[in-house]
Design a protein around this nucleic acid. Sequence first.
DNA 1: AATTAAGGTCAACCATGTTGACTTAATTAT
DNA 2: ATAATTAAGTCAACATGGTTGACCTTAATT
Lengths: 168, 168
Amino acid sequence: MVDLNSSPNSEFLREEDLRQGIELLFYAYRDFTGEPDAILDKYGLGRAHHRVIYFVGRNPGITITELLEILRITKQSLSRVLGHLLETDFINQRADPADRRRKQLTLSGKGKSLEHELTSTQMERFARAYRDAGAEAVEGFRRVLIGIVEPEDRARVRPTTMRNDKRR
Amino acid sequence: MVDLNSSPNSEFLREEDLRQGIELLFYAYRDFTGEPDAILDKYGLGRAHHRVIYFVGRNPGITITELLEILRITKQSLSRVLGHLLETDFINQRADPADRRRKQLTLSGKGKSLEHELTSTQMERFARAYRDAGAEAVEGFRRVLIGIVEPEDRARVRPTTMRNDKRR
DNA sequence: AATTAAGGTCAACCATGTTGACTTAATTAT
DNA sequence: ATAATTAAGTCAACATGGTTGACCTTAATT
């Protein structure tokens, strides 16, 4: 439990500030999905297809189970969307040679092209926001949003602060 | 158009960093809606009801049209959800005395109580994230997310940086 | 008096989520 | 070798919350 009133350094933990965060997240998410949605329409696809295309593009060779963990939806729900993307050759499938039960998913050329068309609108939005806000603000943005994400999933977000780390 | 590769100060505008932003927003939104969804289930309500309750609570006396502008959904879609909240007395309605076509919406006692139950889980999530990230990071978070929101809607997010401003 | 604005309503449809039951094939454990 | 487990697929029924389109009422504005 977090005390919203009497904590000593509660300067930025007041209800008004917390509500501002809630609203920012709502509006930002709403607007961030708007542009891709319009593009998807032209292809007869929906937001759910975008999510699949995005994460397959980002994680080439990802399996169904891994995708389900990221999306937090059921296999049956994914099946409709993924099935359609396989039929229409946006995504390719092949058995993992090491464990032939697993299907490795990758984007086709067509899939990569659509992924780029969709995601570039979102990247441009972020690029503008990052540029306008400045590098320090970007670091703050990351720190706060990472704190909003459930701890188990924090590792999924690639740590760019480590990108010059020797372990890479 | 934003050049993602050859801009001189593109240190944090590289594709990897932009994709990290996209993913943070996806995961954060996913997790931020999870807890309220579970509570709503107990009342036989859904996420759409939460949004209505939230924004009515936040803007007492708000009209249907204003609510539609915030939510960016159709009147018919809002009608189902709002109609149910009116029937079940979570929300009250009264004609605006200055323009009796307008219906002013407010939360009932029951509505306020549910609003608090739902929103407090999200506020606690933000309070933890803000506390862990620190005040500077919070300011950066705000600056970046404001940049993600469409310019027309930026004014909707109450500017807490102005809270000690003499104009208030 | 005519037009506009705010809101309401009916109907059909669509996208995307759910639960539950059951199957197949491949791998792993006993 | 057999049994158990895991990964994936499939069928069906249903819920939620969006959409479009047509049309209506009431109140305010011109």
